[in-house]
């Protein structure tokens, strides 16, 4: 048994995958976005977004609500037209409707708002999509995600709707899955199942483009992350690098108040202390933190992921300029 820790990111192990599909080497771009811009009057929903998503990776598209994630996704699917710039999906230019329509048989899409025909049962809805793009993996998926297929969709809970959405997005075994907030509405157990499923898909050579506003989720499954804020890509990097810079949110409850100068180290930033409880963001090594803490009389410790907003604040400043290193 290997030690199971919070930081044991499964993404780290996939370099030496023994999966059967050797052609799925990472690198060739499945999605290539180049200066993609969408304006609605004065509002710029996407502003010169540029990055690539390589074959066989799980790419996390991270940003607060309203940052422009869904706009990018809808541009990629050709639902809306770019004001400037362009993108290719599986080699098809998003401005070329005909080419884009053709590659859609190899694309799975899970929208943030799932607009099903509510009068249909789950099974009828899947039959409908199957007629357009096949369903060779339907049964396999229905063993993992089990929406009540014989009930009308109008009676579904949001979790069941999401599961039906997941099944329709993957049942035709697409090369590329574009998922907009794929786990919202799912209970934690199903979220774990979804994450494990996405990792297995990635290991089988599929490409996953995955938007989320939850850092921990992106952190768990994604190999690489792009962060979007106010329509602009503000960071593009490997998840490990991001987390290294993101640090950890720590809350320590001490038996008695200690001298702050003795307790605080240079790796702690944004320290707030109220009576015996100290909160801070820790940017150093986890081991060093624990070694430091045992010197004090600790009642309780919580170490969690930092909030996305904190990452922005600490590492990207409040400036709206894209960072160097954006593709």
């Amino acid at each position: 048994m290997r030690p199971q820790t919070d930081a044991d990111d499964p993404a780290a192990e996939t370099g030496s995958t023994t999966e059967s599909d050797p052609e799925s080497a990472r690198g060739s771009a499945v999605i290539s976005i180049d200066g993609l811009t969408k304006r609605y009057g004065d509002v710029t929903a996407n502003d010169g977004v540029t990055f690539d998503v390589g074959a066989g990776e799980i790419f996390g598209y991270l940003g607060p609500n309203g940052a422009g994630k869904t706009t990018t996704i809808r541009l990629l699917l050709g639902l809306i037209k770019p004001t400037a710039g362009t993108a290719t999906v599986l080699g098809a230019d998003v401005r070329d409707r005909r080419a884009l329509t053709e590659v859609k048989s190899d694309v799975g899409y899970l929208p943030d708002t799932l607009g099903f025909e509510d009068r249909l049962t789950g099974r009828q809805a899947l039959d409908y999509f199957a007629r357009m793009r096949g369903d060779e993996r339907r049964e396999e998926l229905l063993e993992l995600f089990r929406p009540p297929l014989d009930k009308r969709i109008e009676t579904y809970s949001s979790g069941n709707r999401r599961m039906l959405g997941i099944v329709q997005a993957f049942m035709h075994d697409p090369q590329l899955a574009i998922l907009d907030e794929p786990t919202s509405g799912l209970d934690p157990l199903k979220q774990d199942r979804m994450h494990a499923f996405l990792e297995a898909e990635r290991d089988a050579g599929k490409t996953i483009f995955f938007s989320s506003h939850v850092l921990s989720e992106v952190q768990r499954v994604c190999d690489r992350v792009g962060i979007i804020r106010d329509g602009e890509l503000v960071a593009l990097e490997d998840i490990d690098d991001l987390l290294e810079r993101g640090g950890k949110d720590v809350r320590v409850e001490l038996a008695e108040s200690v001298d702050e100068d003795a307790f605080v180290t240079s790796e702690m930033i944004d320290v707030e202390s109220v009576e015996g409880t100290v909160r801070f963001t820790y940017t150093g090594e986890a081991g060093a933190l624990l070694e430091h803490l045992v010197r004090f009389e600790v009642v309780d410790v919580e170490i969690g992921d930092p909030q996305l907003d904190d990452i922005f604040k600490h590492y990207y400043g409040d400036e709206r300029e894209p960072l160097p290193g954006d593709g």
Partner: peptide, 18 residues
Amino acid sequence: GDVQDRRMDLTLSNPVSR
């Protein structure tokens, strides 16, 4: 109706032209 309820998003995610 389909555009408003976002059914069109799902329909057009299929290999079918507008």
